[in-house]
Amino acid sequence: MKHIHGRFLIAGLMMASAGVAIPFGQGAVAATHTAGPQQVKEIAAAQNPSDFIRSLGDEAISELAGKKIDDNDRKERFVNLMDKYFKMDQVARFVLGRYWRSLSDQELANFADLLQKYLALNYASKFKDFDGEKFVVGDYTENNKDIFVNSQVIRPDGPPVKIVWRLREFDGNLRIIDVTIEGISMGITQRDEFASVIQNNGGKVQALTDMLKQKIGEN
């Protein structure tokens, strides 16, 4: 009966949404400034993965953080940021698991759009209460064809939250394909949940897209 509190409705699951919860802090601004000259130098060569994430943090704070921004604006800006930094069709195929093969190119593109809006609905609002946190980008490691950038959100109260960004190179450009917060992968979480929805609806992806549309209010 030890740690009911730790078990009751599970610890980490909250971290999942919690982590994304944590908006990017001012630390990133400072970090980007110091990285500035280096960034300029490297523009011709391959981009530094840590700088790539720093600039995302920088943009996210200036565009998403704060209570003054209208919620719909925030969602729209969130989608724009994803367009710029994420490889959405890759993410879309991953979260569909084996079902992506049953979709045409057009259907997949539509699904990627829908997914983006759904993620914006889930995560954009997390930036609203940003206050006092700092986003610090660390080093990166390479594993097979992917690059993992480590970062932390330093909170005024409580331990820092670890965020790992998974990047892959597409035609010489780095793009994010997954975000892992305290060991919880956004992609894997969505994939598992979507798989359950599809399976419970006779293997039809249509059921999933209908539900997504309903959530984001397109129906």
Binding site: L13, M14, A16, N122, I184, T189, D192, S196, L208
Partner: peptide, 28 residues
């Protein structure tokens, strides 16, 4: 806050919890 939001936005709350639990345990 996180729990209520997950309930509200997830398509299959049960499946989402199941995945989060598994990943969290792997992590710890």
């Amino acid at each position: 806050d996180n729990l209520e939001q997950l309930k509200q936005t997830s398509l299959d709350y049960y499946a989402a919890l199941r995945s989060l639990y598994r990943q969290h345990r792997n992590s710890v």
